[in-house]
Simulated scan of single mutants.
Amino acid sequence: MMDADHLDETLNYAWQQGWITNRGIFNSLMAKVDPIQRNQDDSRQVLNGLNALEHEVRALSGKKISAAFAELLLSQVLYLNNMYK
């Protein structure tokens, strides 16, 4: 399972593999991950960030984000969500 510290590395890897196909989308996802990683001691902010990340990934799954990667990332978001509740 993933921790919040590795979300950015996961997105970078997905970008390099072509699983995220648009630079603007990649940047948007990274912008959502940044406050999650910076505010890990504030569960409310982490949960808000995870919620925003989840919504964007769901909206772009199979479009600008490969469906298989989106499914994997969403499972990790759910795992993190449960950790911070």
Rank of each mutant, 00 (worst) to 15 (best):
T21C: 02
T21K: 09
N22T: 08
N22R: 12
R23G: 00
R23H: 04
R23N: 04
R23W: 05
G24I: 00
G24T: 01
G24M: 02
G24E: 06
I25E: 00
I25H: 01
F26H: 01
S28W: 06
S28N: 10
S28F: 04
S28R: 05
M30N: 04
M30H: 11
M30D: 07
A31G: 12
A31H: 06
A31P: 03
A31D: 13
A31Q: 13
A31F: 02
K32R: 15
K32A: 11
K32L: 14
D34L: 15
P35K: 07
P35W: 07
P35T: 10
P35D: 08
I36Y: 02
Q37H: 04
Q37W: 03
Q37N: 11
Q37S: 11
Q37P: 05
Q37K: 14
R38F: 05
R38D: 13
R38K: 15
N39H: 14
N39G: 04
N39Y: 11
N39S: 12
N39W: 05
Q40P: 08
Q40I: 07
Q40E: 13
Q40L: 03
D41K: 11
D41T: 13
D41R: 13
D41Q: 12
D42S: 11
S43L: 03
S43P: 03
S43Q: 02
S43E: 08
R44I: 08
R44S: 15
Q45T: 13
Q45P: 05
Q45V: 14
V46F: 14
V46I: 08
V46A: 13
N48R: 14
G49P: 09
G49R: 01
G49I: 06
L50H: 10
L50N: 07
N51E: 12
N51G: 13
N51P: 01
A52P: 07
A52G: 12
A52I: 04
L53E: 04
L53P: 05
E54K: 15
E54V: 00
E54D: 13
H55K: 15
H55S: 15
H55F: 11
E56F: 01
E56I: 04
E56T: 11
E56R: 02
E56V: 08
E56D: 07
V57D: 01
V57C: 04
V57E: 09
A59R: 09
A59P: 00
L60S: 08
L60M: 11
L60I: 02
L60Q: 15
L60W: 03
S61L: 00
S61R: 02
S61I: 03
G62N: 08
K63T: 06
K64G: 03
K64I: 00
I65R: 04
I65S: 02
I65Y: 03
S66L: 03
S66M: 12
A67M: 09
A67P: 01
A68L: 12
A68H: 09
A68N: 15
A68F: 10
A68Y: 08
A68W: 06
F69D: 10
F69M: 11
A70M: 10
A70Q: 10
A70H: 05
A70T: 11
A70F: 09
A70E: 11
